[in-house]
Amino acid sequence: MRNSEKVFCRADGKVITDYREAIVIGLAPGGIAITWVTGPCLKPIEVSRTQATVDPRGPYEGKSNGHYRPLTDISKAYVEKFGIPYESW
């Protein structure tokens, strides 16, 4: 991110000098998180790849004996009526 690079930019067909200016975190199935540093017209560089682990304490940092708290009546009615919109996540 500190060093500029000369790169051909397909968007306008010119060679430009630019900096990497963005950090992108991608989440993949199986608990994998990958981090890239990138910028306009520049190829992303993978910075890290991490495998998540399950917290053995369980939900609520172990303060609920491994169980999630029950839904409120309003939340329960909503889920029963509309379901959980997994595709929108």
Rank of each mutant, 00 (worst) to 15 (best):
V15K: 10
R49L: 02
D55R: 11
G30A: 02
D73Y: 06
E46W: 07
E87W: 10
E5Y: 09
S4E: 12
Y19D: 00
I45W: 05
R10W: 12
M1V: 06
V47H: 04
D55I: 03
L27H: 13
M1G: 10
A52N: 08
F8R: 09
I23P: 03
A33P: 01
M1L: 07
P59R: 04
G83D: 06
E80N: 14
G31D: 02
P70N: 05
C41G: 05
A11D: 05
T50L: 07
F8T: 04
S4D: 14
T35I: 14
T53L: 09
V24Q: 05
C9T: 00
G31E: 10
C41V: 08
S75M: 13
V47C: 07
S64E: 08
Y86R: 05
V54Y: 06
W36A: 11
I45M: 02
I45G: 03
V7Y: 08
G66N: 03
V79K: 04
G58V: 00
W36G: 08
I34M: 11
E80I: 03
V37W: 11
K81G: 04
D73H: 07
H67D: 01
P44R: 05
D55W: 01
W89V: 12
Y60W: 08
V7G: 03
P56F: 04
Y78M: 09
N65V: 02
F82N: 15
R20E: 00
Y78L: 11
I32N: 09
T38R: 06
V37C: 05
G26R: 13
K63P: 00
T35S: 11
A22K: 14
R2A: 10
Y19G: 02
E46N: 15
A52K: 08
E61P: 00
P59Y: 06
V7F: 06
R69A: 06
T72K: 13
V54T: 15
K43D: 11
V54R: 07
P85Y: 15
G83I: 05
G66T: 04
V54E: 05
S88R: 15
W36V: 06
I32Y: 10
K63V: 01
R20T: 11
T38D: 10
V47Y: 09
E46P: 00
L42I: 15
T38W: 06
M1F: 07
R10K: 12
K76T: 07
Y78S: 08
A77I: 04
H67A: 11
V54M: 07
G62A: 13
N65G: 07
E46T: 06
M1R: 02
E21G: 15
A22Q: 14
S75G: 02
G62I: 04
G31V: 09
I16F: 01
